[in-house]
């Protein structure tokens, strides 16, 4: 049975989020993980429009944020790996909540113009990928590439 990964998206106002989410989903899928994505309606619609043929994501595995948090809090589901997208204060709250209600190996993808300040506020135990990316996804992509190497090693050894 494949390991399950959750990508938990924030507000889609920062342009790089959708592209990086699809890129990360693609890389994790190639690494053999089943990919679930939670987000606001708009964040999920952006993914659906960007991936009309479902090359990277299964539309049935796109879930609303509220449903995702409810399912985790009620212990009806859990994931092996989770990346939380953080570009504002609310993102830190979602990250802390996931840390509290899930046993997933956790990483925080911290981006946007306030990335460094936000990263400095996160003191919980998780991997942090930090880049001040807003429009240009390449600095964040490089960090994701490093993460993927580690996830591939982890997926094989666990």
């Amino acid at each position: 049975m494949n390991k399950k990964a959750l990508l938990l998206l924030g507000c889609p106002e920062v342009p790089v989020q959708t592209g990086i989410a699809l890129y990360l989903a693609s890389r994790l899928k190639n690494a053999g993980l089943d990919i679930f994505v939670a987000g606001t309606d708009s964040a999920l619609d952006l993914l659906k429009v960007s991936d009309p043929n479902g090359c990277y994501l299964d539309v049935e595995k796109l879930i609303s944020l509220d449903t995702c948090i409810e399912s985790l809090a009620e212990k009806r589901v859990d994931f092996d790996f989770c990346s939380v997208f953080v570009h504002n204060d609310a993102g830190i709250s979602y990250l802390a909540t996931i840390k509290s209600i899930s046993h997933a190996k956790l990483s925080a993808i911290i981006f946007g113009k306030d990335a460094d300040a936000l990263a400095g506020q996160i003191d919980l135990d998780c991997e942090k990928l930090v880049a001040r990316s807003v429009h240009n996804p390449i600095p964040l992509k490089k960090k994701v590439d490093d993460l993927i190497k580690e996830v591939e090693r982890w997926a094989v050894s666990n």
């Binding site: 509220d66 809090a73 609310a90 709250s93 802390a96 909540t97």
Partner: peptide, 16 residues
């Protein structure tokens, strides 16, 4: 309370 605590019909989000 801990994150995920159910109040009314919502599960609270936040930093413990």
């Amino acid at each position: 309370v801990e994150p995920g605590y159910k109040l009314f019909d919502v599960y609270l989000i936040g930093i413990p």
